[in-house]
Simulated assay, not measured.
Amino acid sequence: MTTKVILVGGGHAHLHLIRSLMDEHDDHVEVLLISRSSHQVYSPMLPGFAEGIYTRDQVLINLRTLCAKAGVPFIQREAAYINTRQRKLVCKDGAVYPFDILSMDMGVDNSSSYTKEKRNKNSDMLDTIESLRDSYYPLIVGEGLIEVELALAIQSYKQHNSKKGHVRLLGESRLLPAESNWTYQKVVRILNSRGVQTWENEAVQEVQENYIRTNKKNKVRFTDLFWHGHTVPSKLFLASNLPIDDNGFVKTIATLQVKEHPYLFAVGDSTIMGKEVKRSESETNAAREGELLWENICHYLHGTELGSFHPQKRSYSVLSTGNGEGLLIYGAVSVHNKKAWKVRDKQDQSYMHHLLS
């Protein structure tokens, strides 16, 4: 008898699981991927794309192609809710898929994603970046790693392609709040040296067609605006009455199973575990989650003991700083040069080659 396993979402842990099925396949297990999009952007390579180093094809993962290589059917639909009693996944268009085991890896949405053209969270991120690069005064609102890296990358693109204007960056708290104060000070110096105009600890109170007003009464003008917003977990958890915390993140246990629902698995940023992981460490943990996820699904099917996952911090991280350079951080030691960027570039390209080959 065939066991039906549904994967909801094309997150990086699921991609790693699907890649592993190219090498090991169980004829008694039928795996199906359901995602609202047929393509997944490999987010660590976004700064390189913004800087003009990578092309679209280099940063996009075609889920249909990947699934076809692994013999996994791909269905482009958006999940609405899970009927946990009958073990059925219901999609927004009414399609219903029964399952024995279901895993969720959808990532997070953004509560206030906004651009001048009113593109929303479902917009093509690559189109958004191209628009910002061509804009005279693009304003990026956000204090996280992705916002800082994009600001530096777009500024670098402008300088190397003779694009007039400069990037503006506004953080509603201190820039890079998840990083050490030492790293923060280093990055601020880099931002200043590259000509990125910054504001910190200023909350947006008003958004108009060509400016925003902050709680400090500053009026920051722009010709294009990117506001990624605060991350919020998938609404699928609430709609399915799954155990969630006050912010909507699904509660999981160390085996990656949803609390009180052993036949449901959840990984990635939308889980209690995932929201505690720094972005610079998330890709490493996603690969490890993908390995353990498939192992634990198989253990669950055979009634054997499941393994536990413990987030692992990387021994080093590399922040993209534009100009083909990176800031490599290893404990209290840092290196800022082109060789540091090449370390990150090699790592990301190796990942994509392994995934797609």
Rank of each mutant, 00 (worst) to 15 (best):
E179H: 14
R36V: 08
S43E: 07
Y330D: 05
L242F: 10
L102I: 13
L15I: 11
N285I: 01
N218E: 05
T55Y: 15
Y157A: 08
T55I: 14
S280L: 09
L175V: 13
T284L: 08
D100M: 11
R344L: 10
K186T: 14
T115P: 13
L355Y: 04
Q40S: 12
N241A: 01
V204Y: 08
R314S: 13
K163R: 12
T223G: 11
W341Y: 12
C91D: 03
E281W: 14
K216P: 15
K235I: 04
I6D: 02
P47Y: 13
G144N: 02
W182N: 09
V5C: 04
S103N: 05
K259C: 00
T271R: 11
Q347N: 12
L152H: 02
L175K: 10
A50N: 04
G171N: 03
V187A: 09
L169E: 13
V96Q: 07
L66G: 00
L126I: 14
D246F: 14
S270T: 08
I244H: 00
M22V: 12
A340V: 03
S123W: 06
L32R: 06
G10M: 02
H230D: 04
K186F: 10
D100E: 11
R85N: 06
K278R: 10
L21F: 01
F222V: 12
D105I: 01
V187L: 03
P44Y: 09
V258S: 00
C67P: 03
